[in-house]
């Protein structure tokens, strides 16, 4: 589903990604762990072209991100083409980023209505279904600031799911939450994983990564240090750097 070959990204002189090679299979749950500043979030944001890569190749579902190949040349995609690609990839942010001026229902139907031009009735029905699924059926008419962080994040997940994405990206979805609210969000993500959604999750929840992840990737200093089966990477890391990181967080 996602294939990265030697992905490079630099902000000015600061090289954030120094050649990332990764493959994510359809239906796989990949957890990205690593210290802050290791490039995990940047890599995630490259996948739906919120960041432009400077080198290497990145493809989603067999199609290059941000470019179209024609013969021997790569053509940069036009704005609306990039939008079309992004609409197929759901993203959940650390700070939720719900639209504060819109009700929960309008947040969820915004994508289907405005981007997919779906009919209003069916979009609303689907939104209610999704809210029920994340356990917030009674919050249809609430505004985001009337919800707790955990509730907001679950609405954000429902909003991303409303676009029927083929891939879901999670950027530290529980990092901004009170500890007691983390569980509800992880439950929703676990259900999603069980249903076979392809997911890439940047997380600091090692227990969750071990339980739900199919693959754990440890990144540091803009490179993939180690990857493999979660239990193996988390309990018996092969690299010294992984070991010292895990010693600090576990």
């Amino acid at each position: 589903m996602v294939e990265a070959i030697g992905v490079h990204k630099a902000y000015g002189r600061l090289e954030v990604l120094k050649g990332i090679d990764l493959t994510v299979q359809r239906g796989e749950v990949l957890c990205l762990i690593g210290p802050s500043g290791s490039g995990k979030s940047t890599f995630l944001r490259c996948i739906n072209h919120l960041e432009k890569i400077d080198g290497g190749a990145l493809s989603v579902d067999g199609e290059l991100v941000g470019y179209r190949q024609s013969g021997n040349r790569l053509y940069e995609l036009k704005d609306h083409e990039v939008c079309g690609k992004r609409a197929e990839i759901g993203m959940v942010f650390q700070r939720f980023n719900l639209f504060p001026h819109m009700s929960v229902l309008d947040n969820i139907t915004s994508g289907p209505l405005w981007v997919k031009k779906a009919p209003g009735g069916s979009s609303k029905d689907r939104a209610r279904q999704l809210l029920d699924r994340v356990g917030l059926a009674d919050k249809v008419d609430a505004y985001p600031n009337q919800l707790s962080g955990g509730q907001q994040q679950r609405v954000a997940i429902a909003r991303a799911l409303a676009m029927d994405p083929k891939l879901m990206l999670f950027d530290e979805p529980t990092s901004a939450l009170d500890p007691e609210l983390v569980g509800d969000v992880l439950d929703v993500m676990r259900d999603l994983a069980d249903e076979g959604m392809t997911m890439i999750i940047v997380t600091h929840e090692m227990g969750f990564a071990r339980e739900v992840g199919d693959v754990v990737v440890f990144m540091d200093g803009g490179v993939v240090v180690e990857q493999g089966d979660p239990t193996q990477v988390l309990t018996d890391p092969q690299h010294e750097r992984t070991r010292s990181f895990l010693a600090k967080v576990l």
Binding site: L50, D79, R86, F93, N97, F99, S110, V115, R159, A160
Partner: peptide, 27 residues
């Protein structure tokens, strides 16, 4: 308006114009 708003809109596939009209300007 917080940049996260533009990013969230972009991640849903909204174009720049749509984001400006429906997300950024109302806020």
């Amino acid at each position: 308006v917080d940049e996260g708003q533009t990013e969230a809109a972009a991640s849903l596939g909204m174009s720049k114009g749509l984001t400006l009209r429906k997300i950024v300007l109302p806020q």
